[in-house]
Computed example of a mutant assay.
Amino acid sequence: MLEIEDLTTARVQRPYAIAAATKRRRRPQSWRGAHGRMMIIAADHPARGALRAGADPLAMGNRAGLLERLCTALARPGVTGVLGTPDILEDLLLLGALEDKVVLGSMNRGGLAGSAFEIDDRFTAYDADSLAAAGFEGGKMLLRIDPDDPGTAATLQSCGQAVGALAAHRLMALVEPFVAHREVDGRLHNELTPEAMIRAVSVAAGLGTTSAYTWLKVPVVPDMERVMAATTLPALVLGGEVADDPGAAYASWAKALALPAVRGLVIGRSLLYPPGGDVAGSVDRAVGLL
């Protein structure tokens, strides 16, 4: 097992160590933990250029700091896994932090935050074959549906193909859908209303040649009962931005977890960069909701 400061040296002198660590990783016996739910730590934001956490616009731009927080979170009881891009997951593999964990690889990171081509979200990271070869448990894709942006069509097609390819390997396809619009200033904005999420969930559930291995990654919005009534697919609730009122965020997650279709949490910045900096405490509190 390496220390964080040794990662670059290992990459220079022993790049094959990544493949070796991947091969010897102990896989989890189940996608779910002892509590019967999934508790996934998300850390795929940097590859999209989305580095903000709370008031710090470059918080996730410090890789050593991010890895330390991830290792702390993954070591907490009840945490079942992690979601990340190849660079982050390979660092965690070299650090020995992924033993017995569900590992989900992030697939489409080409729709860079703030770019003119953000909706045309290319698959620039993992694909189904590489996830299967690595022995990981699934792949995640972001699907933003902008009725006014033709780039949506290409993203829909790519996500549909990825869902089918993952299912062919019996791997989880975790789809994160939103209806999105451009603001006057050109920024992309996700529409977080029940009606928009019902539409997004309905479209996402129908992607691919089979939905047998499809899960949804959804935000907490008003009337979550109506949103989750739109599908029979299982869902994980996402955390979103670091909340000004953490107590309200935890309460909203707890309410969503009471719905039958919601089978866990997939949270990143809210737990990795909590107000006060207590990563372990924040993660333990989230696990307690399960």
Rank of each mutant, 00 (worst) to 15 (best):
M1A: 14
E3N: 14
I4F: 00
I4M: 04
E5L: 01
T8F: 11
T8S: 10
T8R: 14
A10P: 00
A10F: 01
R11W: 14
Q13R: 12
T22S: 14
R24A: 12
R27L: 12
P28R: 13
Q29Y: 02
W31T: 00
W31G: 10
R32N: 11
A34E: 15
H35N: 14
H35M: 12
G36Y: 04
I40Q: 06
A42G: 05
A43W: 05
H45K: 02
A47H: 07
R48H: 12
G49L: 02
A50R: 07
L51K: 03
L58I: 00
M60T: 00
E68G: 15
R69C: 11
R69I: 11
P77I: 01
G78I: 02
T80Q: 07
V82Q: 04
V82G: 04
L83T: 10
L83Y: 07
G84I: 06
I88A: 08
E90V: 00
D91K: 11
L92G: 02
L93H: 06
L94I: 03
L95F: 10
G96C: 08
A97M: 04
A97Q: 09
K101F: 01
V102A: 14
L104A: 02
L104S: 01
L104V: 15
L104E: 00
M107P: 00
M107I: 14
M107F: 13
N108H: 07
G110T: 06
L112P: 06
A113S: 10
F117Y: 11
D120S: 13
D121Q: 07
Y126N: 04
L131N: 01
A132Q: 08
A133N: 06
G138F: 01
K140V: 13
K140A: 10
L143G: 03
R144W: 13
D148A: 15
G151E: 02
A153Y: 12
A154M: 05
L156P: 06
S158D: 11
C159D: 09
A165V: 03
A165T: 04
A168Q: 15
M172D: 00
L174K: 10
L174A: 10
L174V: 10
E176L: 10
E176P: 11
P177L: 03
F178N: 10
R182I: 03
V184G: 06
V184Y: 01
G186Q: 08
R187A: 13
H189C: 13
E191T: 13
L192Y: 10
E195F: 06
E195P: 03
A212S: 15
W215C: 09
W215M: 14
K217G: 07
P219D: 05
P222F: 11
P222G: 07
D223A: 13
E225L: 08
R226M: 11
M228V: 11
A230L: 04
L236A: 09
L238S: 08
G239P: 07
E241F: 02
V242E: 00
D244T: 10
D245E: 12
P246H: 05
G247D: 15
G247R: 05
A248M: 02
A248H: 08
A251V: 04
W253V: 06
A256F: 08
L257F: 09
P260S: 09
A261C: 02
A261P: 01
L265K: 05
V266M: 15
V266C: 15
V266P: 00
R269H: 06
S270A: 15
S270C: 12
L272F: 03
V283C: 11
D284L: 07
D284W: 00
L289V: 03
